[in-house]
Amino acid sequence: MTVPTTHFVIFAALLFAIGAAGVLVRRSGISILLGIELMLNAANLALVAFGRQHGQLDAQVFVFFVMAVAAAEVAVGLALLVAIFRKQRSIDVDRLNVMRW
């Protein structure tokens, strides 16, 4: 018995929503980066599930690229957080509010 694609996609959509909620709700910079990782990996899961359904390897190749992108993004994001922490001794992003109109 194989798990139907629908189950994977619903699961991926839930993961994606949890990640998006994390980005929007959490105030710690690290948690926001985690939320973004969750969103990207939810999309990966959907890609792999659809790839199996279509019997193609394209989607799995795509997933490797997404992993590389996610790694690069987190590297830059963490570097920014280190610089922000040095500046204001905190990674609470609510304190990034110098600019107002």
């Binding site: 694609t5 996609v9 991926a12 994606f16 990640g19 998006a20 980005v23 910079g29 926001i32 973004i36 969103m39 990207l40 939810a42 999309a43 959907a46 890609l47 599930a49 659809f50 790839g51 359904q53 279509h54 394209d58 989607a59 997404v66 992108v69 993004e73 830059v76 994001g77 920014l80 957080l81 610089a83 922000i84 500046k87 204001q88 992003v93 990034l96 509010n97 110098v98 600019m99």
Partner: peptide, 30 residues
């Protein structure tokens, strides 16, 4: 401070947007 703030905001919004785009791509592929 403002430059770091700009970088962080662009990163979070940009990464969020590309995650949306990616999930959209996954569904279109499906």
């Amino acid at each position: 401070g403002v430059s770091l703030e700009a970088g962080w905001k662009y990163l979070v919004v940009g990464a969020f947007a590309s995650a949306l785009l990616l999930f959209g791509i996954a569904l279109l592929y499906g």
